[in-house]
Design a protein around this nucleic acid. Structure first.
Lengths: 129, 129
DNA sequence: ACTAAACCTACACTCAACGTCAGGTTCAGT
DNA sequence: ACTGAACCTGACGTTGAGTGTAGGTTTAGT
């Protein structure tokens, strides 16, 4: 598939794909004959993964550091140990984020309840129709 | 307390505080005599809250939309209903994020296990000391 | 052969969220 | 009265994550 279709399927612009390629997030893809890029499905999967990791709040740099795990084995034992370190740091971060996120959720719920009762109350006193 | 101390306590720079004030995230604070800003503890709490919401991935704009909940009641019933809408959208987003985050955590754990076993294996075959 | 749609590179621009710098004012202690 | 630390504003610089545009090339359909 060409860049246009890939972009459409992944819900990003072709400029974004060029950008990801430039910063090393997405491999340059096959370049047949002239300069056209041709992608297969793994490129699409990679873009999806990138989007998912972005939603978790990772920067593109951080994503670059972990994404290859999903698509190839780290090369050599040095690489593996480095990757292990990254993963362990990442899981600690994730746990902290989970804690904060659940607390935030609780907060939201209690505020929703509060708002609802305030609205109810206002309705009953101001305009009982 | 003055801006320097507030900045130190909250772990941000004074320029960040100026910036937050300029975009309406932080009230201008008391300005006695000459232009010096004097803050009380709620300013500190507000900065903490902002930091927490940032860690959850909200933009400063989004934070501005919800932070007042924590410090004052929304005014009028119209405001309350608007706020309620924001809160409910936010909680849906939060739930989605929680789902993704736990999945990501699971992924990380399985990758960590995989890496550990690969490293172990490599150690045993390559250099059995 | 021709044309429109899709592609290419390269540079410039945007926007958020700050940081840096310069030049001036104010406050606290001596 | 004086000095150094803390403060002020305003303009400009920076980084991350892209977007826009210009000018040229390639491909697919007719």
């Amino acid at each position: 598939m060409q860049i246009g279709e890939l972009a459409k399927r992944a819900g990003v612009s072709h400029r974004t794909i060029h950008y990801y390629e430039r910063i090393g997030l997405l491999k340059p893809a096959e370049r047949e004959g002239a300069g056209y890029r041709y992608y297969d499905d793994t490129a699409y999967q990679r873009l999806e993964k990138i989007a998912a990791l972005k939603r978790l709040g990772l920067s593109l740099d951080e994503i670059a550091a972990v994404i290859d795990l999903y698509f190839e084995d780290a090369s050599g034992i040095k690489g593996k140990e480095k990757v292990l370190g990254i993963l362990e740091a990442q899981i600690a971060k994730t746990d902290a984020q989970l804690t904060e996120l659940t607390a935030f959720r609780r907060d939201l719920e209690s505020n929703i309840a509060r708002m609802k009762s305030l609205i109810d109350q206002a309705r009953r006193t101001d305009c009982p129709l």
